[in-house]
Structures are given as structure tokens and as C-alpha cells.
Nucleic acid binder design. Structure first.
Length: 834
RNA sequence: GCCCGGGUGGCGGAAUGGCAGACGCUUAGGACUUAAAAUCCUGCGGGGAUUUUUCCUCAUGUGGGUUCGACUCCCACCCCGGGCACCA
């Protein structure tokens, strides 16, 4: 009697897989390909079971597809640049590279311990010059095309850190994450941007290509993020300050313009100061402005914040009817959206209604809903916001038009008189990629006094990070205070020049890394387009919902840029996306800071990788959150032991049985029953793997089969060795994608000299799987009153006759008339009585 | 406020409109053992009837509806989780 020893079994098979190079694959156009990918990890801390769930799901898919005959690429790499490495380096007086590489080694050790079927030859690390050289190369292409550009932009600046903070590092409504008593300032700094907005329409329209393959909610989140809004911009002249240009407003409802009661500006609109200069309200305006600006910070308050504002003392002219309107400043108008100025139409907009009622501004109805008594602006209690089921009133020449028709006409008229035009705006903004940090890709640009901005010539790439940076966490970019990096010569004139000291956002690295996997060691190009053409698009991408917007949007953008410079042919890089649920412990996501992690390596040491893998697949369906339970993992461990003992017990006899085959004709009843169960299980497990991704119910089915085999023990009394072989082999093969090490071991025990990795997914034998006899419930008026054993495929007449002959059922039929019979073949009979 | 998910035993969870609770955990009992662990077997939603057998009945957040039949479809509502949020 052997014992299940996962530690030795797992080490043994990992070595054999590696020696046989089982998971290595090459682009071979004659073969059907499958590219499965899990989001690359940021190597920090240690891997816990939350991470492993992601990789386990991907590995099951990869292994199933291999058994199905696909040429599978399944790579892994490291998102190795980023702030935590730099902060850790400052704290521990080490180099970010040292810290990062130590973590990578630890991550790799853990992933290998779990036996994931990665092609490790394709491993990439984004902090290596061989990789980030191509970030720089792409940047230069984008610079040529005008997609990369520099502009002044507002950034979050912490006066104590003396550096720029990312939005995520601004906490509690405007304070620094590391100095919670320090208010973050807004500063204007020159920053590099990528023109994602040049692709707004494509990024939106191509979402259609992803329908069916991506989760609906991810598509929705991206659509909202891009935020396309069709409307109009209209210029309103300023009435009582000479020499000021007109103020432009944005509206989606130009059809309501005759109902405007005021113009409202964002508190930080550049005109506010000009309008207030010399205004009668100047004396108290500053205090009010400060107050309005303050209310717009805290996210939670925005929902409950009351609309507030003040009159500037100035007026504007409605270009459509020449009406003189007061100009107000309001806290609910955002400078970041549209033009930072709106027209307030209280009768037809909820926010304007609230604001105008509060300050006593007039409410004028200009859209009269169909079929109701005329609305009265003075008394109405809620605005009429619909843009259908109504007609224009009080709108001069436009009276009687539907809102849609009015929008078209008024847009055209405004354009003809050049005070406005219909326009589509987007919420999406350009991607700011400048970071004033060391541990990132240097932006390959040089500033020369004579020649100005000069791109680094391609032959000089990569611009490498200096090995000994001046890392203090203080002051501006560390690169700026490292003279050997900054000082260089101009590629054009050879004169003295300075390098750009900003580095790139790490989302740049992850926007195209999956292309590099196709050709990871190419020294002459980011990749060979032919290899990418074979492997792309990615057939299945698996990761957390946390990346639903930024990473996936940037990746889509990058793909389109690459397509436009001729590197790839597809519009979208990822055909199918799967977002797995989180692993929780004590109700919250595992994280080091919460101290509730279950370490992956420790897990494998205690129970073995196969048990860890099986448990994460069994405990919940993959898209849902999973609450970690130490008791349940014992159950997974017990099950694998059970399977091991079963195979161990029969392996000797099976090996002795040689190559004899199961023949349907010669089977006895017990053999038939067992084979039927095995093939029925196979049939359902196959569909759980292929179409439904219900790994948890697939495992339940395999457990059920195992229980049935145990129930038939001692098998040797009734079931011939070749039948036992067939059944135990199916069991082994069905488990193989989930518990690959154990399955290999069992496969060998069953007498196979060739590795299981060479096996195809087993074929369902329909003859074995077919039921001769089925038990069906019989309902009388929808209530189950009995069960019948019937021959499979029996006719309705035969079944009804049997039912009427059954005493228990007949009892419910006596004295009643059968008014309807519903027979679902081999499933159910329902007799409706009156 | 809007948009997604989700609500089924003590717990995790199963169920193309067709026997609700598969499978696992927990737990109780039994077998094996000097004993324990491991293992194997059996029971385990509530209520009721019954002598074992077994039968009845209620039950998938709440209230309606469609249907011969609803965890599943439709309408309204409640609760939980997530995302977005004054987007003009």
C-alpha cells in the first residue's frame, strides 16, 4: 500500500515536464493555436492564494486546450517597474532592482511549485533594458505621429514629499497618503501625454467587437469612461464688461435654450476673475469663491452637497433671443467637463431646477409635454426632462418642433450665424504618462539649447537608467539629480544638452507586454509581426475586475496605434476576457496590510499544490468571490487521498491485465452500471470545462463517480480488470487539468510508460453512456405522487398506462378526470386532473 | 441618484422552465483499534403523521403574475456587495 505523498510526486513530475519541454510551443501556422494569458503580476511581497486562483483557472484552461489538440501559448512575466520598489529601496537602502529581482525569484519559485504549465522561455521582466527599450521605441513612433506630446497640466503636489502624487495617492479628499495632515496642492507642470482622445470614437465603437467575449459590465464601464456626449457649444456674449470674448457653454439640450434663466460658471473658470473685476459684488466674492471651491473635494460629500452659488453682478446675452441673463458661479459646474460653463434651464433639468428655485431665478417652460395641461414654470414641482413626447413652446420660430428636430435646426442656425455648432465631446482625456520617479522607463528625449527638443535617435536606444541613482524620496525626479544621466550631448549638433528626467507610467509596460511574449528575445524589434499574426488575438485573458478600465483601455489604445503604424492587423488585442472573483478571508480580500493572507508556498508545503488548486476550483464558481475555509481544504485533501488509494489498490491487477478492451456485448450488469456512470460523468465534465467553466460542479461530478466506485467495492469480485482500467483512467484524465501532478502519477501507476501529458481528452462512448432504464417522477396536477422505472425512450401511451397501474398514483386519480397529459420523454410525466 | 452583480439548509455551494438542496464542509452515531488519529459505513432543511416501511405538508429575500409545472421567466418591493457619480 503506497501513500499519497504530494511533495515527492509534484517534484518528480515537474522535473519530467521540464526535461521533456512539455509546455514549450512555437508559432506553427499549420496548427490551430490558443493563446491563454493571466494578467502579469507586480512582484511585491509574497504570493497568496488570492493570486493562485487566477493562475489556477488559466492553467486548467491551458491544459484542457492542450488535451484538445491546440497549440497552446501560456506565458508568464513580471510587471517589474513601479513605486513600491523605489519606496522599499529608499527605506532599506538597497537598489530597486535588487528588491525587485528578489521578489521575482520568490514569485517564480512559488509559481513553479504549483506546476503551472508556463513556457518559461518566454518569461519577460519589464524593468530590463531589453524590454523597456521598446517602450522607448514606441514612444518615438508616437512622437513622430504627434500622438505623444508635452503640455502644461495640473498635477497633485505634496509639499512635504516634494513630488507629484498619482490620483490614487491623494486620500481623504485632498491629503497626502504619507502625510495625512498635509493638503495636496495643485501645480501646473509640463508633462508628457499620449493622445488617447485621438482614438475616442474607435475605442468606443470597437467595444461592439468585444460583445459576447468580454463581461458586459467591463464593456459598460469602458463605455462610461469614454463618455461620449452629443450636444452643442454655444457662445454667449458678455453684456456689461467691454472687451471680453464671448463665453462658450456646452449643452446636450440646445432645444431648451429659450428657457435659459442664467449662465453658470465653474468656480475655477478663467472668466470668473475677469467678470468680478470692478463688479458691485467684488467685495464678498472672494470668500464665496473659496467656499465653493472647497465643497468640490470630498467624494462622499458630492452626493449630498447642496447646490450653491452667487451672482457675479454681470450679464450675458442669449444669442437666440437677445435676452439678458445673469451670470452666476455654481459649485455643481465642473471645469473638467465640457467648457466649464452652462446655461441653466430650470424647467427641463433637475440640477438647474434645484439651483434656480433656491435663488429665485425664473423658471420658463419651453417644452410642453404631449397630452397634458400646459405646464406653469412658477408652480411646477419638478422639471420635465424628457426629450421625447413633447413640443417646443415659448421658443420663437421653433415653436411646435419636437426636441430632436429643434436640436438639428438650432444647431444649423447657430453654425450659420457662427455663434455655435453641434459638437460631440468625450469624457476620456489624454493619458498623462510622466512620472517624476526613478524606477520606470526613461522618456527618450533630449533638450538642447540650440535645437530644442530632440528625440533620442533609434540607434542610441535604450536610454538606460543610471545604475547608481540619487534616491531620497525628496525633491523632484531622482534622474534630475543624477548628473551622469542628465548631462549629455545633442544628437543633432553635438553641443551640451540635458536629458528628459521623467519616466513613464508603468501602465505603458503592461499595455503591450502580451505581444512581446510572442517573440520575447528579439533584439531587433519589439516583435516579429509574423509571430504576432499567428498568436493574436489573445483567445482568453484572465484577471481581476480592478483592471476593467485603465489597463484594458490603454492596451486597446496601444493596439490601435500599432495597427496604424503597420505592426499588427487586428483592431482588438483580446477576444475573450474573464474576470475572476477575489479570495476573501474573514470577509475581506486577502492583503498583506490586513494580515489575512494564506501564503501560497506554505499551502503547497502543507497539502501539496494539487490540493490547493483543487480547493480553489471547488469552493466557488470562478467568477464569484471565494471565502477561504481551512476545514474545506481538508475535504479536498481527503478526496485526492481517496482517489489515490483507489487507483493504488487496483493498479497491480490492471497492469497485469494487458491490453484487453471493453466490449459492450460482454458486460455484466455491475460493469454496465459503472461504465455508464463513468461515461455520463465524462460527458458532463466535458461541457463544464468547455462551455460553462463550472469547475466546481465538474469536481463534484468526479467526486460522485469516485463515491460510486467505492460503493461498488470490492470491485475485483464483479468487475474485470479491463473495465476497472477504463473507469480509473477516465477518472485520472478528467482530473488531469486540475490536479496534473497526481494524475500523472496515477497514469504511471496504471501502467503507462508515456506521460499523461501526451494524452488527448478522452472520447465519450455513447453506447456506454446510454441509459436502458430511467426513473421518472409522475406528477398529478404538478405535485409529485410517484416514481416510475421506464425503458428509455418509452412512448407516452406506455408511460401513462404504467402510471395508472401504479397504486400510489392511481389513488390521486380516482374520481377525477385527466384533462391534460404532459410527457417530457425520459424526464417527467404530469397528469392534470379536474 | 444611476448602472451592474447577488439573496437557496448550520456553512461553501448544485440544479436547459421538469424530483430543490447534487458535491463538499460541519456535526451525530456506528465499524475498525488496547486507545487515539486515519479510514470505512449511516443519518443530518423545518413541521407533522406513522410500528419499522413510509406518507403528508411548508420551504429558494418579500408580494403579485405567466405556466400543467417557476430557484429559473415577467412586474413591484426589501436587503447585501461592487462600480460610477452634480457629465450640463
Amino acid at each position: 500500500m503506497a501513500e499519497y505523498n504530494p511533495q515527492s510526486i509534484e517534484a518528480k513530475w515537474q522535473k519530467r515536464w521540464e526535461d521533456a519541454r512539455v509546455f514549450e510551443s512555437e508559432a506553427e501556422p499549420a496548427k490551430k493555436k490558443y493563446y491563454v494569458l493571466e494578467m502579469l503580476p507586480y512582484p511585491s511581497g509574497t504570493l497568496h492564494m488570492g493570486h493562485m486562483r487566477n493562475y489556477t483557472i488559466g492553467d486548467v484552461v491551458a491544459r484542457v486546450k492542450r488535451m484538445r489538440g491546440f497549440n497552446v501559448m501560456h506565458p508568464m512575466g513580471w510587471d517589474a517597474f513601479g513605486l513600491p520598489a523605489e519606496n522599499a529601496a529608499i527605506k532599506n537602502q538597497t537598489h530597486p532592482r535588487e528588491w525587485t529581482n528578489k521578489n521575482i525569484a520568490e514569485f517564480q519559485r512559488t509559481l513553479r511549485r504549483f506546476g503551472f504549465s508556463y513556457d518559461w522561455r518566454r518569461e519577460i521582466s519589464t524593468c530590463e533594458p531589453e524590454y523597456y527599450k521598446w517602450n522607448q521605441w514606441f514612444f518615438l513612433r508616437m512622437l513622430e505621429k504627434g500622438i505623444a506630446y508635452k503640455k502644461k497640466s495640473r498635477v497633485n503636489w505634496c509639499p512635504k514629499c516634494c513630488t507629484v502624487l498619482a490620483n490614487e495617492q491623494v486620500v481623504n479628499g485632498g491629503y497626502c497618503w504619507r502625510h495625512e495632515d498635509t493638503l495636496v496642492e495643485v501645480r501646473e507642470i509640463e508633462q508628457w501625454f499620449l493622445k488617447t482622445t485621438a482614438y475616442s470614437d474607435q475605442l468606443l465603437d470597437d467595444l461592439k467587437q468585444l460583445e459576447g467575449g468580454w463581461p458586459e459590465r467591463v464593456i459598460t464601464m469602458q463605455r462610461n469612461w469614454i463618455g461620449k456626449s452629443q450636444g452643442a457649444k454655444v457662445k454667449f456674449a458678455v453684456a456689461d464688461v467691454p472687451g471680453l470674448d464671448p463665453i462658450e457653454i456646452f449643452t446636450t439640450r440646445i432645444d431648451t435654450i429659450y428657457g435659459a434663466s442664467a449662465m453658470i460658471l465653474a468656480p475655477n473658470h478663467p472668466y470668473v476673475a475677469k467678470l468680478l473685476d470692478g463688479s458691485p459684488v467684488k467685495h464678498h466674492a472672494d470668500a464665496m469663491l473659496a467656499r465653493l471651491k472647497k465643497t468640490s473635494t470630498k467624494a462622499e460629500d458630492i452626493a449630498t452637497a447642496e447646490k450653491e452659488g452667487f451672482f457675479t453682478g454681470r450679464h450675458t446675452i442669449n444669442p437666440f433671443n437677445g435676452e439678458k441673463l445673469p451670470i452666476w458661479v455654481g459649485n455643481f459646474v465642473l471645469m473638467e467637463y465640457g467648457t466649464g460653463a452652462i446655461m441653466a434651464v430650470p424647467a427641463h433639468d433637475g440640477r438647474d431646477f434645484e439651483f434656480c428655485r433656491k435663488y429665485g431665478l425664473p423658471v420658463r417652460v419651453v417644452i410642453q409635454p404631449d397630452g397634458v395641461a400646459p405646464l406653469d414654470g412658477a408652480t411646477m414641482e419638478a422639471p420635465f426632462e424628457e426629450n421625447e413626447n413633447g413640443k417646443l413652446v415659448n421658443s420663437g420660430a421653433y415653436n411646435g418642433l419636437t426636441p430632436d428636430a429643434a436640436i438639428a435646426r438650432m444647431g444649423a442656425d447657430a453654425a450659420a450665424k457662427s455663434f455655435g455648432k453641434l459638437e460631440t465631446i468625450f469624457r476620456l482625456r489624454d493619458w498623462g504618462i510622466s512620472r517624476q520617479r526613478y524606477w520606470g522607463t526613461p522618456i527618450p528625449v533630449i533638450y538642447c539649447e540650440k535645437d530644442g527638443l530632440v528625440p533620442v535617435p533609434e540607434k542610441d536606444l535604450p536610454v538606460e537608467l543610471p545604475p547608481n541613482p540619487n534616491l531620497t524620496g525628496q525633491g523632484e525626479s531622482p534622474l534630475a539629480t543624477t548628473p551622469e544621466f542628465v548631462n549629455t550631448s545633442c544628437p543633432k549638433c553635438g553641443g551640451p544638452a540635458r536629458r528628459e528626467t521623467d519616466t513613464m507610467d508603468t501602465f505603458v509596460d503592461s499595455s503591450w507586454y502580451f505581444y512581446r511574449y510572442c517573440d520575447p528575445h528579439n533584439a531587433n524589434a519589439a516583435f516579429d509581426p509574423a509571430k504576432v499574426a499567428y498568436w493574436f488575438p489573445i483567445d482568453q485573458y484572465i484577471g481581476g475586475i480592478t483592471h476593467a478600465i485603465l489597463h484594458l483601455l490603454y492596451s486597446r489604445f496601444w493596439c490601435k496605434v500599432m495597427r496604424d503604424i503597420g505592426l499588427v492587423k487586428h483592431d482588438e488585442p483580446i477576444s475573450r476576457l474573464f474576470t475572476q472573483g477575489m479570495v476573501l478571508k474573514g470577509g475581506t480580500a486577502m492583503s498583506k496590510s490586513k494580515g489575512n493572507v494564506v501564503g501560497a508556498y506554505e499551502m503547497a508545503e502543507k497539502y501539496g499544490a494539487d490540493t490547493g488548486r483543487l480547493y480553489t476550483l471547488f469552493a466557488a464558481p470562478p467568477e464569484k468571490d471565494l471565502e477561504w475555509s481551512e476545514e474545506s481544504i481538508e475535504g479536498a485533501w481527503r478526496f485526492l487521498n481517496r482517489v489515490f488509494r483507489l487507483v493504488d489498490k487496483h493498479a497491480g491487477a490492471i497492469r497485469g491485465a494487458g491490453e484487453s478492451k471493453c466490449e459492450a456485448a460482454s458486460l455484466n450488469e455491475k460493469e454496465k452500471t459503472l461504465l455508464r456512470k463513468a461515461h455520463q460523468t465524462l460527458s458532463r465534465v466535458t461541457s463544464d470545462f468547455e462551455t460553462r467553466w463550472h469547475f466546481n460542479s465538474a469536481i463534484a461530478l468526479v467526486m460522485e463517480l469516485t463515491n460510486e466506485i467505492y460503493a461498488a467495492e470490492p470491485l475485483e469480485n464483479n468487475i474485470r480488470a479491463e473495465i476497472r482500467k477504463e473507469v480509473l483512467e477516465l477518472l485520472t484524465l478528467m482530473l488531469a487539468p486540475m490536479t496534473p501532478h497526481l494524475s500523472e502519477e496515477l497514469w504511471e501507476m496504471l501502467g503507462h510508460s508515456e506521460g499523461l501529458w501526451k494524452s488527448a481528452w478522452p472520447a465519450i462512448n455513447e453506447d456506454f453512456a446510454r441509459d436502458d432504464e430511467v426513473e421518472i417522477p409522475v406528477q398529478v396536477s404538478g405535485k409529485v405522487r410517484g416514481r416510475l422505472k421506464i425503458a428509455a425512450g418509452a412512448t407516452e401511451e406506455a408511460v401513462v398506462e404504467l402510471a395508472q397501474a401504479d397504486a400510489a398514483i392511481a389513488a390521486h386519480l380516482t374520481g377525477k378526470r385527466i384533462v391534460k397529459k404532459i410527457y417530457v420523454p425520459d424526464r417527467l410525466l404530469n397528469l392534470v386532473v379536474a
